[in-house]
């Protein structure tokens, strides 16, 4: 993307309050009658940031996107999108500065790829429609399919056309709602590559997904929503918040008295033997603990095969939180 808008977008913010935030959401709530879609949601997204919005089905992700896209009015709370306060009157102005790619591509199947894009370019009242279409088709590697009917394209290609459509107006904020939903691994990889390219160009992306590896791969920060916002931060921060850090030690032979070796070591808070026979040590700081543990094992005449820090994935974080919610509901 070579537009002025894209070029002017700067590096991701840390998420702190600043006037340069692309999105500021404060205590936003949406209810449909008695049913709560989402409640008291607050966060900020900086310019150039890729922000992941995770949550199970029915958590309120799509409703949040629709609210920020001015398709749905919030019940309470406030939001500023691309520096424009969200209100009934500001809808068209906000929609002119953002793009939403919904879960379903929503293309006119009897129109060609270029005709679909031309329609949307004119809806945004863009100039140089032809060159913009050429540019976005090039960005999604579909230049050679411009004159194909959308109805003749595979699901993965339709998703790419939808992404091209979302890029047409060089949006200040690009909302992607489950962009890889229902795609095969190859098509998913293609979409990921496109999103990585956009991230590198500094495009602000609000990505809803329940594919955790996708969020981990693409996002600077993530928020986990389950009607209320459960956690927000960088994936590694979330792991640290929820999980203690572990070192996994594999030895040639099992220790006769592991407690004598591990107990009392500074930085080791607890330990246990895993079913595979390795030792998992819960440590305060792996970098400091590892040499001490190695020395203790050598001193005990034990051959060390490997020592590594065991990593919790974003999936572990997510499941931990959602399981907590399920347990809380049972109580």
């Amino acid at each position: 993307m070579t537009s002025e808008l894209a070029d002017s977008q700067h590096q991701p913010s840390s998420g702190g309050a600043n006037l340069g935030s692309a999105l500021v959401v404060e205590h936003l709530t949406k209810r449909f009658g008695k049913r709560i879609a989402y409640e008291d949601v607050s966060f900020e997204v900086g310019y150039g940031e890729v922000f992941g919005f995770l949550g199970p089905n029915g958590a309120g992700k799509t409703t949040t996107v629709r609210t920020l896209g001015t398709l749905i009015a919030p019940t309470s709370g406030s939001a500023t999108i691309a520096r424009i306060p969200l209100s009934a009157e500001s809808g068209p102005a906000i929609r002119a500065r953002i793009s939403i790619m919904p879960e379903s591509p929503g293309l006119y199947l009897r129109l060609t790829v270029a005709e679909n894009l031309e329609c949307f370019a004119r809806l945004y009242e863009l100039r140089d429609v032809r060159s913009r279409i050429d540019r976005v088709l090039q960005a999604v590697n579909l230049s050679d399919r411009a004159n194909d009917l959308c109805g003749s394209l595979s699901k993965g290609l339709r998703q790419r056309v939808a992404l091209a459509r979302a890029l047409l107006s060089d949006p200040t904020v690009l909302f992607l709602d489950e962009p890889t939903s229902g795609l095969d691994p190859v098509a998913t990889r293609d979409v990921h590559d496109l999103l990585i390219a956009l991230r590198e160009r500094g495009v602000t992306i609000f990505l809803t997904t329940h594919r955790l590896e996708e969020a981990e791969k693409l996002c600077h920060r993530v928020a986990i929503l389950n009607t209320t916002l459960r956690l927000i931060g960088r994936p590694d921060e979330l792991r640290e918040q929820l999980f203690s850090r572990n070192l996994e030690v594999r030895t040639r032979l099992q220790l006769d008295e592991p407690a004598r070796v591990f107990n009392g070591l500074a930085n080791v808070e607890s330990w246990e033997q895993s079913p595979s026979g390795s030792y998992v040590l819960n440590v305060t700081d792996p970098d400091t603990a590892a040499p001490d543990i190695a020395r203790a094992l050598v001193h005990a005449n034990v051959d060390i095969l490997s020592m590594s820090e065991s990593h919790h994935s974003l999936k572990d974080v997510y499941l931990e939180l959602i399981d907590e919610d399920v347990e809380a509901k049972k109580r």
């Binding site: 398709l71 929503g106 949307f120």
Partner: peptide, 14 residues
């Protein structure tokens, strides 16, 4: 029915 309403309404159109 064809899922195109949301993309259209997401544009600045009144």
């Amino acid at each position: 029915e064809q899922g195109t309403l949301e993309p259209i309404l997401s544009t600045p159109i009144h």
